[in-house]
Every structure is written in C-alpha cells, then in structure tokens.
C-alpha cells in the first residue's frame, strides 16, 4: 500500500488527502451522480448549496482510493458509485440533504437514449408551427396532427413514451421542438453515509403527507383521550361538556325523564316510533290517515 502510494503523482495524493479530510470533518457524506449535468447547472447547484453542503468532484478512482484508505463502514459507499460520481459533504441532517438535492433538480430537454422518468404526455391543442414536414414528424411518433387556421394542431392528447422506456431520437426531436422538458436533472443522491450507516435514497425520501397524517392521527388520539377520560384542556373542554350534555340527553330520552330541555326530543322519538309502527302496519293492510304522515 505504502509503496503504491508513492506512485501517485503529487496532485493526486493531495486530492485523495483532501477527500479524506472532507469525509472526516463532516458527519454526513453523500455520493452523487454528476453524469449529464451541464456545467452551468453545476454552478447553480453549488451556489444553492453554499453554506449547507460542499460538492467535491473528483475522479472515481481517487474517491475510491480515499474511501479504501479510510476503511470501515464509510467504504461501503463505493457500492453506490454510478456514472460520474462526486462526494458531497455536509453537517446537515441526511434527510434534509436529500430534500435539498431534490429541490435543486430542474427540468431539461430529453436527449436521445435517455429513460423517461415518468410518462411523457403531449397535450392536444394548437401549436405555433406552420404546415410543413413537422406534421410528418408528429405522425411518425404517433401524435395525430391536423392543419387548422394555417397552423398545425395536435388532435388528441398522447402519451408518447411510458415511464421507464427509452426516448428515441425522433421523439426527443419532437419533444424539444414542442418545448417539453421531461428530464429531471440535478444531483441524484445515490447514498449517504451517516454515523456508521449507509442510507439509500429509498430510506432518505420522506413522505411528508404520511407524516402529516400521523400528526393528525396522533392529535385525534390525544383529543379522544382528553374527552373520553374527561381530562379538561382548553382545546377539549367544549367537547367534554358536549359529551356530558349528550349523555344526559340520551339518558333522559331513553328513560323518558320528562324535563323541559328534552321533552321535544322525547316527542320526536315517540313520533318516530309511531311512524315506524304505522308504516309496518300499513304494509300489512292498515290504512293510514293523511295526518299520520
């Protein structure tokens, strides 16, 4: 190992050391795939992450060497290399890092050979194209087009590529002409290392809606407990009173306690009972007089 190290040119040695330092100095180390991200966008992303996370681009071999030299569980990150990797160092919560990176993604035009990240749909409606070869191009990729008012019009909404399928050259060309940008481009977090564990994107993607639901559920549990156990709080005292009043009314009506506050409920109850029996009797041939109903 030591011998091999000697063979590294000075700048590579420095690079490896810098990577190692970055890893050692940050609790969270992410590995991202930079493949296909235009340089201009990389600049934007770096700017967006400034103060939160540092992107360290390097050759995969050097990153691998740094990980190997450090050893231990952080070296497991190697398994998540994909394409042109870069490391990202942060003091942030790894879940928040994931969210941040998702937020830096932008929509880009599709290049031939790329995989559709979701169904790519071309909506129906007028276009700005004048009649010409474009109509044929549309038809070749299955988009029904007609000429209307001197302009090309797409007759119906079409899904031209399904999620997961390859976007071919012709489709990519048409999409770009239509200004449809189906690709999510940005730093895709392949994995993040934090305190001895490697987290995959599936683990890092949090479902906020599910979380909100749990909050709502917990809140209703607390509400229920407070009311059912009659533990008054500012939020629940009204409901507790309501519960007690309802219980008292129920008992009063059920038992026929003739009190002014509930006499109308009792009348209503008797009336409904009468109606139920009246209808049953009617069904068996007893004529009801009009005033009954």
């Amino acid at each position: 190992m030591a011998l091999y190290t000697h063979h590294l040119p000075r700048w590579k040695r420095d690079e490896v050391e810098e990577i190692k330092r970055g890893i050692q100095e940050h609790p969270v180390v992410g590995i991202v795939n930079m493949h296909g991200i235009p340089a201009s966008q990389v600049q934007d992303i770096r700017r967006n992450l400034r103060g939160t996370a540092r992107v360290k681009m390097s050759r995969n071999t050097l990153i691998e060497r740094a990980l190997n030299e450090l050893g231990g569980s952080v070296a497991d990150l190697k398994e998540h290399f994909e394409g042109q990797s870069a490391l990202i160092f942060t003091n942030e919560n790894p879940f928040r890092l994931f969210k941040l990176l998702e937020q830096t993604k932008t929509k880009m035009a599709a290049k031939p050979g790329e995989i559709a990240p979701e169904d790519i749909v071309v909506p129906k409606g007028p276009t700005t194209f004048k009649p010409g070869p474009i109509v044929g191009e549309f038809q070749q990729v299955g988009i029904p087009a007609v000429i209307e008012g001197g302009k090309v019009k797409i007759r119906e909404t079409k899904t031209v590529v399904k999620k997961g399928e390859v976007i071919n050259r012709k489709v990519a060309g048409v999409l770009s002409k239509l200004g449809i940008k189906p690709m999510d481009v940005g730093l895709a977090l392949q994995a993040a290392y934090y305190r001895g564990s490697v987290f995959t994107p599936e683990m890092l993607a949090i479902d906020e809606e599910a979380c909100a639901k749990k909050i709502a559920f917990a809140a209703s549990q607390a509400f229920n407990l407070s009311v059912n156990a009659a533990i008054p709080t500012r939020l629940t005292i009204g409901a507790i009173i309501g519960r007690a009043v309802s219980e008292a009314r129920n008992v009063g009506v059920e038992a026929g306690v003739y009190e002014k506050d509930i006499i109308d409920l009792i009348i209503g109850r008797a009336r409904r009972e009468m109606l139920a029996v009246a209808l049953a009797a009617q069904a068996r041939g007893f004529d009801l007089d009009e005033e009954t109903l």
């Binding site: 109606l275 139920a276 049953a280």
Partner: peptide, 28 residues
C-alpha cells in the same frame, strides 16, 4: 280490526328500535 290484524305479524320492538336509531323521515 284492521290495525290489530295488521300488527299481528309486526315485531313492534324491532320497529321501535330501528326508529330510535335511524329516522323514519324517509317515509315522509
């Protein structure tokens, strides 16, 4: 006579209980 005959086959208890919980309003 008609009433007594009609109620012969009616389970009054059941009809009452149904009325207590759900309304007969529909009949209206």
């Amino acid at each position: 006579k008609a009433l007594v005959a009609a109620l012969e086959d009616v389970n009054i208890e059941e009809a009452i209980n149904r009325a207590a919980l759900a309304p007969v309003a529909a009949a209206a």
